[in-house]
Simulated scan of single mutants.
Amino acid sequence: MIALTGHDSRSRAGRPKRADARRNYEQLVEQARIAFAEFGVDAPLDEIARRAGVASGTLYRHFPTRLDLIEVVLAKQIAELVDLGRGLLTVQDEFDGLSTWLRATLTHALTYRGLAAAVMNSALGNGNDLVSTWHAEIFEVGAALLARARESGVVVADVDDADVLKMVGAIAWAVRDTPDSSAQADRLLALLMNGLRHA
């Protein structure tokens, strides 16, 4: 699972956080996840603190910068997406497992597009390999689901792992400014899945 970029359940001195500090941390991450999905990367940090029931100073003690908070939220969401994919490797219907994960991947791309861009821009400027680590995790589980579907004969044999994941990203990009982006994304994903299905 992806590490949360240095922000974990232990204090900087190496001691476990107090129970109330851990609760505050978890509430801040959860409320930030909701706020970023609702308002995008520029969601007001003071509003996130208010929703979490803590003072703004508490937020800044845990996350000195906006990017620190964005990285933790995005890492948590990507880790959940990867865990979902690994769990789907054991479902009986290989095509349904692949479809479920690609839909979840598309939803993630639509919801957290701005966060990913913010982290990527920072990583490019600072030589941070965080984004490449996330990409590797996602590619690994996506490739495993596609390999399983190929081996069972439910998708065409010559499908390329990278092509499929790029197409999911392309769908998210193509519908980004449309008023019914979610519905349109569903239709485009259905077209992709129909193309993958073995006749």
Rank of each mutant, 00 (worst) to 15 (best):
V54P: 08
V54K: 09
S56N: 08
S56K: 10
S56R: 13
G57Q: 13
T58H: 06
L59K: 04
H62E: 09
H62N: 11
H62S: 04
F63K: 05
P64G: 09
T65A: 00
D68M: 02
D68G: 06
L69C: 03
E71T: 07
V72R: 03
V72C: 02
V73N: 01
L74D: 13
Q77E: 15
Q77C: 14
Q77S: 14
I78Q: 15
A79I: 06
E80P: 04
E80A: 15
L81T: 00
D83P: 00
D83Y: 13
L84I: 00
G85K: 07
G85P: 00
G85M: 06
R86M: 02
R86I: 01
R86L: 01
L88E: 05
L89R: 14
L89D: 01
L89P: 04
T90V: 11
T90M: 11
V91Q: 10
V91N: 02
D93F: 06
D93W: 01
E94N: 05
F95L: 09
F95G: 01
F95P: 09
G97S: 07
L98H: 03
S99A: 15
S99F: 09
T100M: 09
T100Q: 06
T100C: 01
W101Y: 09
W101G: 02
W101L: 02
L102F: 00
R103M: 12
R103I: 02
A104G: 09
T105I: 00
T105N: 14
T105H: 14
L106C: 06
L106F: 03
T107V: 09
T107E: 12
H108V: 04
H108S: 08
H108R: 12
A109M: 08
T111L: 12
T111F: 04
T111C: 06
Y112D: 05
R113G: 03
L115G: 08
L115Y: 00
A116N: 08
A116R: 14
A118R: 05
A118F: 00
A118Q: 10
M120H: 01
N121W: 03
S122L: 05
L124A: 13
L124H: 11
G125V: 06
G127C: 06
G127N: 11
G127H: 12
N128M: 02
D129N: 04
V131W: 07
S132I: 14
S132E: 15
T133F: 00
T133E: 08
W134E: 01
E137N: 11
E137Y: 08
I138L: 13
I138Q: 05
E140I: 00
E140R: 12
V141A: 11
G142W: 12
A143M: 00
L145P: 08
L146H: 07
A147Y: 08
A147C: 07
A147K: 14
R150W: 05
R150T: 11
E151L: 06
E151M: 11
E151N: 13
E151P: 08
S152P: 14
S152M: 07
G153P: 07
V154K: 04
V155T: 09
V156R: 15
V159W: 06
D160M: 06
D160C: 07
V164I: 14
K166Y: 13
M167F: 14
